[in-house]
C-alpha cells in the first residue's frame, strides 16, 4: 500500500501532464477551441428542446434546464468511460517500452473529461438564469452527485479498460450498453410518466441525475437515490481497482 502511494507521488506529474495533454489536444486545430465545451451542450440542448417541445408538445418553460442537467451528466459518463476503455490500447507503444503505473492512463482520461465537464457546467448556470430557476440553498448539494459520478466513471472505466485489453468487442458492446443507459436515464422525459419503474432501479446514472436535478431545482436530496448511487459508485470502483490490479501484468501480452 505504501509502495503504491510512493509510486503515485513519483508519477503525479505524469498524471498532470497526460490530463493536460488530453484537454489541450481535444480542441487543438479547431477554430473555437475550448469554447466547444460550452457550445456543444448549448447546441444539443437547443435541438432536444425543439424536438420535445414543438413535436411532442411539452409546454414546461424550464424544460431546457431539465434536459441540460441530464444530458451533461450522461455525456460525461459516456465520454469518460469510452476514453478510459481505449486508454490502454491507444498508449500501447508507451506501455511496451517504459514502466509507468498503468492506472495512470484510464485515470488521466477520466480526469481530463471531468475537467471539461465542470467547465461546461457554466452553460447550465447560464440557462438557469435565463429560464429563471434561481439557485436555493440546496444548490450546494450538487457536489455529492458530482463526486459520485466521478467515482462511478472511474470504476466503470477501469473495468472496461481491463476487459477491452482482452476482448476488442467491448468497444462495440459498450456503445450499445451506453445507448440503453441513455434511454433509461430520463434525460428528456419525466420518469414518473413511465409505466415500468423497475427499469430505473438498476441504472446508477438515473439516480445520480435525480439528485443533481433536485439540487438544481431547489429540493433536498432523495435518500433512496442517494443510497443506490453511493452503493453503485463505490462497488464499481472497488471491482474496477480489483480487476485492474489482478490483470495489469498481463496487459502487455495482449496489446
Amino acid at each position: 500500500m505504501e509502495r503504491v502511494f510512493k509510486n503515485f507521488k513519483k508519477y503525479r506529474y505524469l498524471l498532470f501532464e497526460l490530463t493536460k495533454k488530453n484537454i489541450k489536444l481535444k480542441y487543438r486545430r479547431s477554430y473555437l477551441g475550448i469554447f466547444w465545451t460550452l457550445l456543444e451542450p448549448i447546441l444539443t440542448t437547443i435541438v432536444l428542446t425543439l424536438v420535445f417541445t414543438k413535436f411532442r408538445g411539452n409546454s414546461d418553460v424550464s424544460f431546457p434546464v431539465y434536459i441540460l442537467t441530464g444530458r451533461l451528466l450522461y455525456a460525461f459518463f459516456a465520454g469518460s468511460t469510452k476514453m478510459a476503455m481505449k486508454s490502454i490500447r491507444s498508449n500501447s507503444g508507451m506501455i511496451k517500452k517504459v514502466y509507468v503505473p498503468k492506472y495512470i492512463y484510464p485515470l488521466s482520461n477520466v480526469l481530463s473529461t471531468y475537467i471539461t465537464f465542470l467547465i461546461s457546467l457554466v452553460v447550465l448556470f447560464a440557462a438557469m438564469f435565463i429560464f429563471k430557476i434561481y439557485p436555493s440553498k440546496y444548490i450546494f448539494n450538487m457536489v455529492i452527485p458530482l463526486l459520485q459520478l466521478l467515482i462511478l466513471s472511474l470504476g466503470v472505466g477501469l473495468i472496461l479498460a481491463t476487459l477491452a485489453v482482452f476482448f476488442r468487442d467491448m468497444e462495440y458492446l459498450w456503445g450499445v450498453a451506453l445507448m440503453m443507459i441513455m434511454y433509461t436515464s430520463a434525460i428528456f422525459y419525466d420518469a414518473a410518466k413511465v409505466g415500468s419503474q423497475w427499469i430505473f432501479k438498476y441504472n446508477p446514472i438515473y439516480h445520480i441525475i435525480v439528485n443533481f436535478r433536485n439540487s438544481v431545482f431547489g429540493s433536498p436530496l432523495d435518500m433512496e437515490a442517494l443510497l443506490i448511487s453511493t452503493i453503485y459508485s463505490f462497488a464499481s470502483l472497488f471491482i474496477g481497482v480489483l480487476v485492474f490490479y489482478k490483470k495489469q501484468d498481463k496487459f502487455i501480452l495482449n496489446i
Binding site: Y11, Y13, F16, E17, K21, K24, L25, R28, R29, V98
Partner: peptide, 18 residues
C-alpha cells in the same frame, strides 16, 4: 505524441520517465 510540439513532448516524455 504526434500532435504535440517538440517542446511539449519534452515535458511529456520527461514525465513518462518519472
Amino acid at each position: 505524441d504526434g500532435q504535440y510540439t517538440g517542446a511539449e513532448n519534452i515535458y511529456l516524455y520527461g514525465a513518462v520517465l518519472g
